[in-house]
Write a protein that binds this DNA or RNA. Structure first.
Length: 573
DNA sequence: GACTGTCGCGCC
DNA sequence: AAAGGGCGCGACAGTC
């Protein structure tokens, strides 16, 4: 697995210590999984899970020291943990979210790079530091367990660490399984929108036709539509008073060039983001294998690197089709974040609205706002910190009806504006603002501060406040989703147990239902069709369980939109 | 030629 | 319709 030599696996709780030759790891892990159901403790799931999966071995449980160490290190919930050592060992790399935000937290941050919200300092990759010994792993695991136990809410923190670790396993498994992707369907979508695949260096026919029309309407025969700067100049020369080439601005103008230009931009986006080149690069053997990055963002949402799995446009989802004899179970949590807010704030009026299937409709029925659209915009505005436009105008109405919910997000915003951390339900904390942020605040409080200094400081304080306002809701929603996902994984393993024993020597994902996609509040299971109903039940049960794990019997429901289908495209509500 | 910053836009 | 949170990515433009 990792070259030659001895490797070590641990389950300190079970007193289990596996030491064997590298070549035997997969077999030994498989044996112990069957016999002892261990919780493996390792530095980084990314070091082990891919090769184990390649060898046909799935691990039921693990503790990922890297991800859990990152949560514990920055959590306000462990701030009062007394004598427990808070320093992580040098062999434990920072998590991906910290790699982005780490420079902000590090006292020795490099020079100020300007007013960016985040500063970048890529941490070491999984293989760049020396491997820890078994004794190192035991010491670090003990430290993390002690820190969790000494935290403000030990049960919540233990749940978060377990969910985060399960997420790391699932991320590896999603990559291993791949999303079923029908190349022929994708190609048909592209040809219908763009025309036949053009030779290298040529634009698709539909884009050429639209470009001709735009140039004619703008009276700019040599215009390159792909250059924002040239395009903006040409638009203004034609009397279209836009400040950018963004489509929401263009839509406001009633000029014959606008319609073909918007069409051109839509096609250009499809071509560059998910065109033939994407298909060639990312779809192999009818599978799209994204690189998921568990714990990849500050709020605990995942990130992906490569392939753009977080932004698969609706137009190409038709290519996600189950294998013959198999089905997709597609599920997403409806209106997850507003429901999380209601439960988190224990706001009785908002929780009442969160009891029905359509929370926005319930808000209208309660007489808070006039239309469902207004309810949606107002609620999103409350969570994101909108101050202007329709959204900003509607927020005060919401605040009168749901004072406790509003107080929760307002408090989070004030904390952020003051430079304080905020923390999710289970204990994940926001990063501290970057050094440049603190410097901007300090500059504004100097006696010789200029109006520009003060404006800049106020603006960056509010920016950070919007981030922390959203953090508690988005981060807690991510915790719900992780618990949901982990529950689904466990239940699928039970469903597939009989099948996979029958196929013990075959590929891991060949015969039993398995997760193939996850996106914030949405998941897809690929399953033999005869098991689809049982999978659907498992997905629903897991959602109910996630609600109970986070909020006990709080009176908020987390309904799913769920479909058993052959194609992702037909699952859209 | 390699790198970085910005824009624009897709997703939640 | 508007432009408030979180992302990734490709294209362009400017810089070295």
């Amino acid at each position: 697995m990792r070259g030659a030599g001895r490797v070590e696996f641990l389950d300190p709780d079970a007193g289990l210590h596996l030491e064997c030759d590298a070549a035997d790891v997969a077999r030994e892990v498989a044996r112990l999984e069957a016999d002892a159901a261990p919780r493996w403790v390792w530095r980084d799931t990314r070091e082990w899970a891919p090769a184990l999966l390649d060898a046909g071995v799935r691990v039921a449980r693990c503790h990922d020291l890297r991800l859990c160490g990152a949560i514990l290190a920055s959590s306000t919930a462990t701030a009062g943990a007394g004598s427990v050592v808070r320093d992580r060992p040098h062999w434990l790399p920072v998590g991906p979210a910290e790699a982005v935000l780490g420079a902000a937290a590090a006292p020795a941050a490099p020079v100020d790079r300007g007013p960016a919200l985040f500063e970048v300092d890529p941490g070491p990759g999984p293989e760049q530091t020396e491997s820890p010994s078994a004794a190192d792993l035991v010491v670090e695991h003990d430290r993390q367990v002690a820190l969790a136990a000494a935290s403000d809410r030990p049960g919540a923190m233990r749940l978060l660490l377990a969910a985060e670790s399960a997420g790391a396993l699932i991320a590896a498994e999603l990559h291993g399984a791949g999303l079923p992707w029908r190349r022929s369907v994708h190609e048909r979508v592209l040809e219908e929108a763009l025309g036949p695949r053009p030779p290298v260096g040529r634009k698709p026919a539909r884009m050429d036709e639209l470009a001709v029309r735009v140039r004619r309407e703008l009276d700019a025969p040599a215009l390159r539509l792909d250059s924002q700067a040239d395009l903006l100049r040409a638009l203004r020369a034609a009397g279209i008073g836009v400040d950018s080439t963004a489509k929401w601005e263009l839509r406001e103008h009633d000029h014959p060039a606008v319609a073909p230009l918007l069409s051109y931009k839509r096609l250009a986006r499809l071509l560059t983001a998910n065109g033939w080149a994407w298909l060639d690069e990312w779809v192999v053997d009818e599978r799209f294998r994204a690189d998921y990055v568990a714990g990849g963002t500050a709020t605990g949402r995942w990130a992906t690197s490569g392939g753009g799995a977080l932004q698969l446009p609706k137009a190409v989802r038709a290519a996600v089709v189950a294998d013959p004899g198999w089905s997709l179970v597609v599920a997403d949590a409806a209106q997850l974040e507003p429901r999380v807010l209601a439960a988190l704030a224990r706001d009785p009026a908002m929780a009442a609205a969160g009891r029905g299937r359509d929370m926005y409709r319930s808000i209208v029925d309660a007489g808070v706002v006039a239309t469902r659209d207004e309810a949606k915009v107002a609620l999103l505005g409350a969570m994101y910190g909108a101050t202007t436009g329709d959204s900003g105008r509607l927020v005060p109405q919401l605040a009168r009806a749901y004072p406790r919910a509003m107080a929760l997000v307002d408090r989070a915003a004030r904390d952020g504006e003051a430079g304080r951390q905020v923390t999710t339900l289970l204990g994940r904390s926001s990063p501290v603002p970057p050094r440049s942020w603190h410097e901007a605040q300090a500059a504004a409080s100097q006696p010789d501060a200029t109006a520009v200094d003060e404006r800049r400081a106020r603006s960056s304080a509010r920016d950070w406040g919007r981030f922390t306002r959203n953090f508690v809701v988005q981060g807690t929603a991510a915790e719900w989703a992780l618990c949901w996902l982990a529950g689904v994984r466990t239940r699928l393993a039970e469903l597939g147990a009989g099948r996979s024993r029958a196929a013990a020597s075959g590929p891991v994902f060949e015969r039993s239902p398995h997760l193939v996609y996850f996106l914030h509040d949405e998941l897809i299971v690929h399953t033999p069709s005869e098991t689809a109903d049982a999978v659907a039940d498992a997905v629903l049960e897991s959602a109910a369980e996630a609600g109970r794990l986070l909020f006990g019997e709080a009176p908020v429901e987390f309904p799913l939109d769920l479909a058993v289908t052959e194609s992702y495209a037909s699952a859209d509500a």
